[in-house]
Design a protein around this nucleic acid. Structure first.
Lengths: 247, 247
DNA sequence: GGTATTGGCTATGGATCCATTCACTGCGAC
DNA sequence: GTCGCAGTGAATGGATCCATAGCCAATACC
């Protein structure tokens, strides 16, 4: 789920490991902090604090903030500062509308190249999801499931964008998952089963159809919960010192 | 056509004008150079040269290269250098496949909010396009036409991505337009007319259908011309000193 | 007492200088 | 003659230092 969209940035060989270039290391660290929820949307990110915590100068931090801004994870305002991106409901719906068109494409491009082992793993993950009640575990498994269905997609541009949007909505998916009722889970399981069945039949049309519905239904459900986006301005709360708690 | 995707980067008030921050100024300059064709795909971009030409230090240039990399216009390799992004045919087809799903979405979101004046201007532009034989003029008008059809889209995320892909394929569209035959032009004009008619009828379904076909046909046509992507490696040719010729 | 202006402080933006790394070239050995 | 290794050079990555733009508070004036 934390697959890093290498959006034309450094292809510095070793990916998320101990990246050779400091900019990438800092970016990886901050990305992990944001995706894990340590840094919540709206949180201020102070260059100096991050630099001190990671034992680097402010320069790699600045570049990292640009990289993350490109991925949509941070917002940088000139002569002002950087914050973790926050979405209002309209923006979040926008992302879901994009995903509704884009992920079926990724799936359609992927299905012809999925191996039998990958399809088998899909079923394993789906079963695990149905047995899960823990929200965080569900999120992790759900992410693995969907991204695995896209694993066969050879078009890097598409997978990069899918990853990107997956990341930017991470926080809202987590919040959303918490308030899903039992009937909601049942529908999700049903959709997963239908998608996987279509994949097994190599039926890209059906698979895309069910996936479109899956995302669309989620978007409409999300629209019924505006309270997810009404947390007050706490721009200056929980400043970036929370970034250090990952060490 | 050179609408700048403000992908979470600086919202430094004045956009492409004399941006207050040097990073943005440099990014704007390089973007213009790339989109205009002065800097061709594969061209090496040397930080020092650009810095000298724009009267800035290398630091803003570095940040500008990151910004442009995020937009897909440049590629940065650690400890190696930066180049104008080059696509092979597979990547270009990938972008077209994305556009095939994304731009109909933008159009569908736009149509309900288009004003009568905008629709009227669409017809004006379409007529001008049909009278045009010059390739560069066609490119400019075609860009204005399509982006105007998306002008009503309120979802900034979508328009940002549309602009981004429009920019990254700019060079290939130019090359492609040169080898279109008369019958090709006729089909393009027909598609434009159908799309605009659907827009006038506020028929988003038809409009999306025709637009999908328009892009898809272009992609398939493009696939028949692999010679567009076979220009040999001239990585070290026409280095970035061409960037200065815009002043 | 309220408001506006000014001054200081903080955080970011930019410039210069140093370290690092990759690539090219030249030499030598097989 | 060709392959491989080492050395040199240039360009990038990183660190420190300085300038500048916002923001907040304190003070003075209305």
């Amino acid at each position: 789920m934390s697959r890093k969209p290498t959006t034309g940035s450094d292809s510095s060989g070793s990916d998320s490991a101990g990246a050779a270039v400091a900019s990438q290391r800092v970016a990886d660290h901050l990305r992990a902090a944001i995706l894990s929820g340590e840094l919540r949307p709206g949180a201020r990110i102070m260059q100096e604090q991050v630099a001190a915590q990671l034992g680097a100068s402010r320069l790699p931090v600045r570049e990292a903030l640009r990289i993350l801004a490109a991925e949509g994870l941070t917002v940088v305002k000139s002569n002002s500062g950087a914050w973790v991106s926050r979405m209002d409901m309209a923006e979040c719906e926008g992302v879901y509308k994009i995903r509704e068109r884009l992920e079926p494409l990724a799936l359609g491009e992927s299905i012809p190249h999925l191996s039998a082992e990958q399809v088998a793993e899909l079923e394993t993950i789906a079963r695990q999801i149905e047995l899960t009640t823990d929200v965080d575990r569900f999120l992790a498994l759900d992410g693995r499931l969907h991204l695995l269905t896209y694993a066969g997609c050879r078009v890097t541009q598409i997978t990069a964008m899918v990853d990107r949007f997956w990341n930017t909505t991470q926080h809202y998916r987590r919040a959303f998952a918490r308030l899903a009722g039992d009937s909601g889970w049942e529908l999700i399981h049903a959709e997963h089963r239908l998608i996987i069945d279509a994949i097994k039949r190599a039926d890209t049309v059906d698979a895309e159809r069910f996936l479109t519905g899956h995302i669309r239904r989620t978007r409409l459900e999300l629209a019924r919960h505006p309270e997810l986006f009404t947390e007050d301005d706490h721009d200056n709360d929980h400043t970036a010192d929370a970034a250090g708690s990952a060490d």
